[in-house]
Design a protein around this nucleic acid. Structure first.
Lengths: 304, 304
DNA sequence: TACCCTTACGGTCTCCGTAAAGATG
DNA sequence: CATCTTTACGGAGACCGTAAGGGTA
């Protein structure tokens, strides 16, 4: 039971003549006879009134009943052609931390979403520590996180460093970018975001936490801006976030006299990625490289 | 692109494991691998995430998009199974003259309609002269008519003879069946039905038609009864029709002192019938034979 | 005779199974 | 090491084309 048989049947019905059907399908006339015979044998039914020397072929009652099935079959086949033309669907599952996903990567995501042929994107926001197991289980294909954690099957390469600066709200349009002495910052006014363990160590060195003066602690980056706004408080955040806040207005930022080590974003991937994501991954890295250059240019522009 | 490929794909999706799918389909495990490879090659797409040693197989995005097509394909295949189970459809196209179709054959038609497996019946009412060309063009498969007309490809065999009798309306419950002298019948009161050319000759011998006394002429048998009823007129009709009228009441019938030759009904068929109607034809003739016996018995009953 | 379908037969391609190899955990 | 999939290869069967056969108008 082949699509060719169905095609032959429908064409013979249309042309009412086996020979003409053969021409139309670019096969020999015997092929059509064979196909009809196969079809009728498999169905256990005579579909067409025909015979040697007879000029016009007509449908038997069974043949008429078979017509709708044949038509649906042909329609399904056409649909299949469309499916073939669409070609391979690309898919990519990406994960990163909230700050990067919300503030940095949206332009990159836009590029990926506009890519032709379309890529099935799925984006995950998780803390660094949770991105690794997801990647190991291959629930995501690539991620960008704050730390290099050793996993046997995971490859981790540094991507970008970003300085950490002090961000605070400001009513005057203060074109900050000055330098602040660490000791001038009151720990009671801090909104504390523990970016990495290294940053935590550095932070504890400068502002030892005691029970009576522990700073407000936040783990959601976007929320930080909401809380800082018009509060007279300060927070240590990545430069890009500070620049973004500054561009909104109502914020100012400064470098620290004794700076923490810059944050490093790492690209992490599985050493043996799912074979079907190879193409999507290479596309992703192409856009990521282009995106890196844009970021660097933007950073220069912000510096003025 | 075979149904087996689709079946393999769906089963693997269900079992998430090529080996189990192979067991379920009673084929070797390599067969499933081959089928999936064929399918993916034809579609130009990877459908399933799999690989040596991997325990659980999952769908790629393309594979997910293919699922509805595969399901519809499987559904079509099931429908095809139903079609196969129904088997050959029988068809029969039958033709006859109005009198026989309306008064004689209905019980035969009932039998044919109740036959299992069902027969696609089509019934045609035509004059004898028109039945022959229809049969020659094979637009009907078998017919019963009043005359034997010579056609090269048509086989004509006598079926039954029926006497012609005089039928008239009667108010008294006259158990007629007497004999009437031809000369007692007034041609001015006749409803004339020209059954056959032979009958016409005989009729003209006894009641030469002249312009002033031509009888009322009718070619539709059922209408004859309507016209005869309560009119004091008479008509020469087949015995069966007279018996039927008598059974309705209000009619009486008599034999003629000088009878016309009995009417002969002929079975006519094409010498080379459509091959697909052979079975239906043999069924038809089986019922026709049985029907003939019933008619003979009924005729005896009527005679009292 | 011209046209049309079927049958016979041989070559090519497809599909499946066995056996062996490669990968994973 | 057990489990799972892929690759290699050979045999059986499907499908098609050429050529011949058989019917019809």
């Amino acid at each position: 039971m082949h699509i060719h048989d169905i095609e032959a049947f429908l064409t013979v019905v249309q042309t009412r003549n086996i020979s003409r059907a053969a021409e139309q399908l670019y096969v020999s006339q015997t092929a059509i006879t064979h196909r009809l015979q196969n079809l009728e044998a498999e169905l256990g039914v005579t579909l067409l009134e025909r015979g040697r020397g007879i000029k016009e072929i007509s449908l038997t009652p069974s043949g008429q009943d078979f017509m709708p099935i044949a038509h649906r079959w042909a329609a399904l086949w056409k649909e299949l052609d469309h499916f073939k033309e669409e070609g391979e669907k690309l898919s990519l599952s990406f994960g990163s931390v909230q700050y990067l996903n919300d503030f940095i990567f949206p332009p990159l995501f836009q590029k990926l979403l506009n890519h032709q042929p379309k890529i099935h994107l799925s984006l995950h926001t998780e803390h660094t520590a949770e991105l690794y197991p997801l990647l190991e289980r291959r629930e995501i294909d690539v991620a960008i996180a704050w730390r290099n954690i050793k996993y046997p099957d995971i490859l981790c390469t540094p991507w970008k460093k970003t300085p950490l600066v002090v961000l605070k709200s400001s009513t005057i349009s203060d074109k900050g970018i000055s330098t602040v002495d660490n000791t001038d910052l009151n720990p009671q006014d801090e909104i504390y975001v523990p970016w990495t363990p290294e940053f935590k160590n550095w932070h504890d060195d400068h502002w030892p936490s005691d029970i009576y003066s522990s700073p407000t602690l936040l783990t959601g980056a976007p929320l930080t801006l909401q809380v800082l706004k018009n509060s007279g408080r300060w927070s240590i955040v990545p430069l890009g976030m500070a620049q973004y806040a500054f561009s909104l207005g109502g914020f100012t930022y400064s470098y620290l006299s004794d700076s923490p080590a810059p944050l490093t974003a790492y690209i992490i991937q599985h050493k043996k990625p799912r074979p079907t994501t190879q193409r999507s991954l290479s596309i992703f890295f192409k856009y990521l490289q282009e995106f890196s250059l844009n970021i660097d240019r933007q950073a220069l522009a912000y510096k003025v």
